[in-house]
Design a protein around this nucleic acid. Structure first.
Lengths: 264, 264
DNA sequence: TATGCTTGTGTGACCATGTCACAGACGAAG
DNA sequence: CTTCGTCTGTGACATGGTCACACAAGCATA
């Protein structure tokens, strides 16, 4: 409960992040202290932001002021950046890496709600912040995360004064809400074979390989490990893929794709 | 698709709303044209807003300007105010009545995502508007709806200039997102008997009566009518309630409540 | 090379939920 | 009273989730 600190220590400018707890997903490292560059580095921030057209085009003075108080942050993979029930402090803008936002049930089952990818902002932070609520889910870094942290006060000034930033933030909200509604639809009405098949396609590399355990896939889809195992076995029986320990190899991509549109 | 108009006709100041399509919920009336008061009526708006402390306390000039261009709207019960796939035009603030926001599957099953009650704003509208997306769900009035409509341009000015309005809007977003996450959790991990029992408690009046069809409850919970029927029958068998046509009477409230915490 | 440990996978039995088909019951309209 | 549309009940079956447990693949260590 009280083991997370996500605020700058005034004297040392050190950002403390604790990662504890359990997750069925990969990347379960537990890190404790993440050092942060002690001074504002506009050059770095400008360089990072330059990859993202929505914001890099902005040149209004308020946005520039916001950037001046922004602080670059680096967080190792597998760190819990916020947990269910926490309060929160900063507005985070992801430059590189991703944060997996997930919900965990009492019985241990998990479901991934969405990911905050590079070029996106963690709107859950904002929304908690401004509606004085606690996080309704937890967020875990999936890769080494580079992000820009903006204090609440500056975030608010940015929203007030920069039409471009405002537009960006509301866009983020819109996409997240649409994502969540899609997820509700999927979970409530979707069939497991289709959802799993789709997930396989999404996470396969160019060679049709997927390096995930069944448990990880179950946590992604919000189902049980056995269900994934059974379904994958059935896919293998049909000759669409080959199973290995912690790895899957898609051998008949067209057939798998075809199944997604013609389930029967 | 093209049968909805939700913009003021410049010459006549008439708000056109068409309600068509099918829904398994109640209130299936199809209305066509909703006349709207032709002039701005600050008195009416002030009176309505006075019931909602979050906004009525605001006296900054920008918010007052927003209110000056706000238009009161009345929409009959059962009207589809927006449908899945639509674009949108106005920011709506509900004064009285409620809008049910739901998602419909291809096979006809439905699920209620949330309700926009009196004192709340339809953030889906805003989010679509500002992220240039289409509605990912549909909205239907459940009672006679009184609302205040604010044009996009003024909404944007309000966000920029009024800290109070900004805070209100972000609060709305936060609550909706939290609601949706709770719903995902419920649908993904929750048991049907618990969800149904909870819904019964929530929708019963003081006498323990619920005037809803099994189909309506199924649409609320995103399940099938048969499942609700079976579950209710089981509740009746246990002596917790009595079933009637289109109505349920809770006869043992304590036992029902107890089941929600001790399912077994 | 054996040994034991941890993690990942396979499987059968059983319960919960969703689908389908169809019967019957109720109430309103004629 | 009949007719009709709506609402409810039910059995059979398909899918998905839970539980218990076996077994296999990798890894570390003796």
């Amino acid at each position: 409960m009280l083991c997370r600190h996500f605020a700058a220590d005034k004297s040392s400018q050190i950002l403390l992040i604790r990662a504890e707890g359990q997750s069925n997903m990969q990347n379960k490292k537990n890190e404790f202290v993440v050092p942060e560059p002690p001074r504002l580095d506009r050059t770095v921030i400008d360089e990072w932001l330059s990859h993202f057209p929505e914001l890099s085009g902005l040149d209004d003075p308020v946005w520039q002021k916001v950037l001046d108080s922004a602080r670059p942050v680096e967080i190792p993979s597998g760190t819990t950046v916020f947990r269910d029930g926490d309060g929160c402090q900063n507005y985070m803008f992801v430059i590189e890496g991703a944060v997996r936002v997930q919900k965990m049930a009492e019985n241990g089952r998990e479901i991934v709600l969405y990911r905050v990818n590079a070029g996106e902002a963690c709107i859950l932070t904002t929304s908690c912040l401004l509606s004085h609520q606690r996080y309704p889910a937890e967020g875990i870094t999936e890769n080494k995360l580079r992000a820009i942290s903006i204090p609440v006060k500056l975030f608010d000034e940015g929203i007030a004064g920069s039409a471009g930033f405002r537009s960006f933030v509301f866009s983020s909200y819109g996409r997240r809400i649409a994502d969540l509604i899609l997820l509700v639809e999927d979970v409530a009405f979707g069939r497991m074979d289709i959802r799993l098949g789709q997930y396989l396609l999404d996470s396969a590399n160019d060679d049709g390989e997927i390096a995930l355990t069944h448990q990880a896939m179950a946590a992604e889809l919000g189902t049980a490990r056995e269900v994934v195992s059974r379904q994958l076995k059935e896919f293998e029986r049909r000759g669409w893929l080959k199973l290995g320990r912690g790895a899957i190899n898609i051998s008949d991509l067209p057939a798998l794709k075809d199944h997604l549109s013609t389930p029967i």
